[in-house]
Write a protein that binds this DNA or RNA. Structure first.
Lengths: 334, 334
DNA sequence: CTGAAAGCGCTAACAA
DNA sequence: TTGTTAGCGCTTTCAG
């Protein structure tokens, strides 16, 4: 059962194929009456445009790809959801791609898709900036939660957020904090550390960095152990997953949170409000980030703007039970 | 900068376009030496096949769509991940589609994609069976966590799982349980209730059903309140999200879990091991479900098999802290 | 084993 | 406003 084509519709409606084509893709270039007639017969024949034929000639696929570093990280759920909704609203399809925390796989997947999508959303990309710039030379690209000079980007605010975080800890009497860093090649990890370090200096708090750690619950054990070798009374984990792993390990070792040590994370994932104790974390409207990123991508495809806008979505420090007053003596005493 | 086509390669390699085409899509129909030569020049020119041109004539898109009822439900993460990995392994791209818990949106999205994918994975579809059968008449379809006579399906085992669940509760002295049901048109909800009811009857436990409830944390409040109007000493929630919402509401109302009432869920999401108390739940290898579903879809596209296999992936009852001995007096006493 | 040639279904000049 | 026509890049008979 071959499905009907533009020819069938043209014949049935007694117009030319281009009129049918226009009725669908440029409605205002057809007289209202004919358009109606065409659309009606199309409906009657169950005609649906073939996206591949369309893409072949128009070079637009109505599809965007979103590459995430790890599809199972709950942090991405809202991001994906926001992006998906926004894409759908403009008749675009979102293809989700998992980089499995591997820069190599990330690049392979991107290459595989260059011909089948109109643009890329790269979330927390681990590629060196030069790779991204090179990609952007031939593809529309928006980087998410990363900033690259010359590329359009959307990031969740974190410089000020980190400052608030350190300030919150300082006000609780913490004089030494440790940042349990994310992956080596993560822009976010570097950027957060810079902000934390600056805020700490400003507030007279001692800050050190340890790691890198894979941002998973499993890595939290090692991260906690590392933190305990220092005099820090507060640990800032690269994300909530790592923070939850830290909480687990601390509980196992009999270290009380927040009585002995405070712990904070990033992302405000769903589980941050469920773990014990509940987790203080830097959250924000991740769905808005996804939405904005798609929007940037779509507008950068329509108009010919070369500004490479850099959007920032506000963040919010969520205070929960994992932070409290600093102990007088330090952790390594134990 | 027009990217190179099959013509460029043909010319550069001094062969015909069909030979180039074959070198890529039917390697064994080209002499090894020519194939090598073609592939080499293709590489040199940076040639990559245009998937749309290919799809237009071959009618295969190398893409499958996975429709999930709610993309933010953590239960789907592993499912998606398994499906994505399996698809990639065969050179297929997975398009993720969110039905936003709406049968109408689900159908719209499916229709939108019929021309651009080779098949559909429908996870927890809320469509009436007839719609699915009708869809399957023109598209390759595998339903996931649902069974429809005549359609290929993969489900996580739950009949025996429900029996174990009820048996676990019975052995703790629970004589009356309540199932807090999922959405009205959810096959899973109906199927679980049937299994729970049967197991309860067999074990001399009284079982009732309440609901339907939207399977979210937010709905857990209403579900908990409903459960407390009964004499049940154990509540079986449709999924972990609902169960977590129930735990919250019970804590707010001062009802102790499991001292006063036991709670169990389904899915074993990440958060089930983080909430307080940790949640007893029916888990399983969700990634395997996703993997198997894609595999079924791909093989059903290759060979011409009309058996519509119905796969079952084993489940596992995970005992945690939310279940314990039944109180002697019932809940509504309070 | 390889080549020639006819489309796949649609869009986009260009004409009328 | 509408029609004619030439491809988009590839696969696939059909010959050789």
């Amino acid at each position: 059962m071959r499905s009907s084509t533009i020819y069938d519709v043209a014949q049935a409606a007694d117009v030319s194929t281009s009129t049918v084509s226009r009725a669908f893709s440029a409605p205002d270039r057809v007289r209202a009456a004919t358009r109606e007639h065409v659309l009606e017969t199309a409906r009657r024949l169950g005609y649906q445009p073939n996206p591949h034929a369309r893409a072949l000639v128009s070079r637009r696929t109505q599809t965007v790809a979103m590459v995430v570093s790890d599809i199972t990280n709950p942090h991405f759920f809202e991001l994906i959801r926001g992006a998906e909704l926004r894409a759908k609203a403009s008749g675009y399809t979102l293809v989700l791609v998992n980089a499995e925390e591997s820069p190599r796989i990330e690049l392979e997947q991107i290459q595989r898709l260059t011909r089948s999508v109109d643009g890329f959303l790269l979330a927390a990309s681990r590629q060196p900036a030069e790779n991204l710039l090179q990609l952007a030379a031939t593809q529309k690209v928006v980087v998410v939660n990363r900033r690259v000079p010359g590329l359009a980007s959307v990031v969740l605010e974190h410089a000020e957020g980190c400052r608030q975080m350190v300030s919150h800890l300082a006000s609780l009497g913490h004089e030494s904090v440790v940042y349990l860093a994310g992956p080596q090649n993560s822009w976010m990890a570097a950027s957060r550390w810079a902000a934390i370090r600056a805020a700490a200096a400003e507030l007279g708090v001692h800050a050190r960095r340890m790691g890198p750690f894979t941002p998973t619950v499993a890595s939290g054990g090692a991260a906690a152990d590392a933190a305990l070798t220092t005099d820090a009374t507060a640990a800032i984990a690269h994300n909530d997953l790592l923070a939850i792993g830290v909480l687990r390990r601390l509980a196992d070792r009999g270290v009380r949170v927040p009585a002995d040590v405070s712990v904070v994370g990033f992302d405000d994932i769903f589980a941050a409000d469920l773990c014990t104790p509940t987790l203080t974390t830097l959250g924000g409207a991740h769905a808005d980030v996804g939405r904005a990123a798609v929007e940037l991508l779509l507008t950068s495809m329509d108009q010919y703007r070369e500004q490479a806008p850099q959007l920032v979505v506000p963040s919010e420090l969520i205070l929960r039970r994992s932070t409290g007053s600093a102990r007088t003596s330090d952790l390594s005493d134990r």
